[in-house]
Design a protein around this nucleic acid. Sequence first.
DNA 1: CCTTAAATCCGCCATG
DNA 2: TCCATGGCGGATTTAA
Length: 321
Amino acid sequence: MNARAQAHTVALAVTDGVPIFELAIPCEVFGYPRPGLTDTWYDFRVCAPAGATRIAAGFAPVTEHGLDSLADADTIVVPACHSVHDAQPAELVSAVRAAYDRGRRIVSLCSGAFVLAAAGILDGRTATTHWMHADLLARRHPEVRVDASVLYTDDGDVLTSAGTVAGLDLCLHIVRTDHGAAVANALAKRLVMPPHRPGGQAQYIDAGPAPDHADELGPLLDWAREHLDRPLTIATLAGRANLTERTLIRRFRAATGTAPMTWLRNIRLDHARSLLETTALPIDQIAERSGLGSPANLRHHFTRTVGVSPSTYRRVFSTRA
DNA sequence: CCTTAAATCCGCCATG
DNA sequence: TCCATGGCGGATTTAA
């Protein structure tokens, strides 16, 4: 996806009993004009079934859009559902299915994944949901690969996010996809949230006493961020932290939710992305500075995770005149 | 695309 | 008994 000339339409599907927090997230991210960020923001609309609808906490939606108009939008956001135990509203499920069949981008927040699963559009895909409901989702829909360890999943036309606040991470990710990292970072700043949360939902699943090693790795992570251009290995990192390789890997996963080299590669890709946006450095220089090594390696990982080649990305998202 | 060598990383388990 | 550690095997991923 790329920056669009005409406003990209985002529709929020509202049904009875939906918790208001997950409703507020897309409203905050997509629903307010953001003067100064980009020329065109999203065209945002709320869609609700006809008749008296009561959402949580005594609020009721006022909108002229019914669920049948979901499929007119480019992106459909399904917030958390009323209950993961009851059947999902048939009207909502079929409306989401219809939008999917028309090639729209479908997004779920939190337990909204149950609606997508009921519509059959998660079959064969990797998806996530709130960690409390991940087992239930996997049991009820064996065709869905449920990954409770991540904050969100991006399968191109279908995106899902983990519990509650992770919906904010996903919506910001969508802005990053549509408008580039510079706009997403500026928006994050306005929302007073980190532009990118490292790690995944995994770090929150452990209910017990907070892992006190979590902060311990901080200095190491900071050091790594500042020396991306070096050929960092597990042995290097373990040596700096005075840990054995096995313990480093274990602590790393406990603290960040990912393995060390996976984390490092993501940081490197972020840096490469930023260099592509803000500088005119040749690709091999960017590969070197970000620590991705060769241009071939940069291209390989970049296209795999971002979806477009580095040169295409630069052409679309460069902030230079 | 391929092949191959190296690196990563996680389950397992003895150890302290 | 409980728990973190760290060595080892090897499946998987990555670099070239």
